[in-house]
Computed example of a mutant assay.
Amino acid sequence: MSTYPAPGQPLRRPPEIEAIPFGDSALMLKLATADAREREAGSRRLREILLDVRPHGLTDVVAGVDSLLVEFDCLTVSHGQLAQLISLAVAGSGLEPGGQERATELFIIPMVVSAAYSPDLPDVAEELGISPEAVLRIMEDSELSINLLASAMAPMMGTVRFPAQVSRCKEPRTNVASGSVMVAGTSAIIQPFPGPTGWKVIGRTPLTVCDIREEPATSYRPADRVRFQIIPASDWQRLEGQFLRPAAGIAPDSARTGKAG
């Protein structure tokens, strides 16, 4: 398929992409821009392009917050050859900042706060120098963007409007319940399945965020938006186990009055 512009149209200048060798069979890719939002958006778009084009030798693409680790078969392609193939793919697909991205979805995620579900909330509040209630207000007031899908399809989100960075646990927990809402730095993440973590647990959602019986197993994707909503424990039974779906028709400014599930 030709990628030449129509007569009279200016040639698009593809953004600079840093391609750093990462061992014998991988490249670390990052947009060469100081703007964090441009790097994050560009990284998401670059991932879509690579998974669609599948350059010769490519074996896997691992997403980071604002970078990609691209793994390849070093017996069929070199670092330099793959970097050139990626540049050609980008030139023909439009990765420049401000390029058209897919429409994002908004998710309203209910969260129950209690001594059992929020073991690290007092520590987070003390570390930030604010009250636990203020921590929760910040969580509700922050509209987060899903930066990437981490281990087990966990949605990793930023940026929570905390006044400072939140440290991780000194001793990671060996088993945290599914649905646990956790924070570290100025990011948040939800535990899809029981497992270990070093993030600090400040609440739990009764919804199921990842279900292998669904197609696809998650209804969210990178760049989708998230608002948390504190709900009373009495609502847990009504919502427990429902699959997380977008909050259709709810504008960001009215998110706190929306309904989840």
Rank of each mutant, 00 (worst) to 15 (best):
P14N: 10
P14E: 05
P15V: 05
D24A: 09
L27A: 01
L27E: 07
R37Y: 05
S43H: 05
R44D: 07
L46F: 04
R47E: 14
I49K: 00
L51H: 03
V53T: 11
R54T: 15
G57Y: 01
L58D: 08
V61E: 06
V65E: 15
S67T: 11
L69N: 13
E71N: 08
E71W: 09
D73H: 03
S78T: 14
L82W: 02
Q84V: 10
A89K: 02
A91G: 09
G92C: 02
G94Q: 00
G94P: 02
P97L: 06
G99F: 08
F107L: 06
S114E: 14
Y117M: 15
S118I: 07
V124G: 05
S131Q: 06
E133T: 02
L136Q: 03
M139K: 06
D141C: 01
S145G: 14
L148W: 07
A152Q: 13
R161C: 08
F162I: 07
V166G: 06
V166N: 05
C169G: 00
P172L: 05
T174M: 12
N175F: 12
S178I: 00
M182G: 07
T186C: 12
I189Q: 13
F193T: 00
P196C: 02
T197L: 09
G198T: 08
W199A: 15
K200P: 10
V201D: 07
V201I: 15
I202H: 08
R204C: 11
P206F: 02
L207E: 02
I212F: 15
P216Q: 01
P216W: 00
Y220C: 08
Y220N: 05
D224I: 03
V226A: 08
F228L: 09
F228P: 06
P232D: 04
S234Y: 00
R238N: 12
P246Y: 01
A248H: 11
A248D: 14
G249K: 04
A260P: 08
G261K: 04
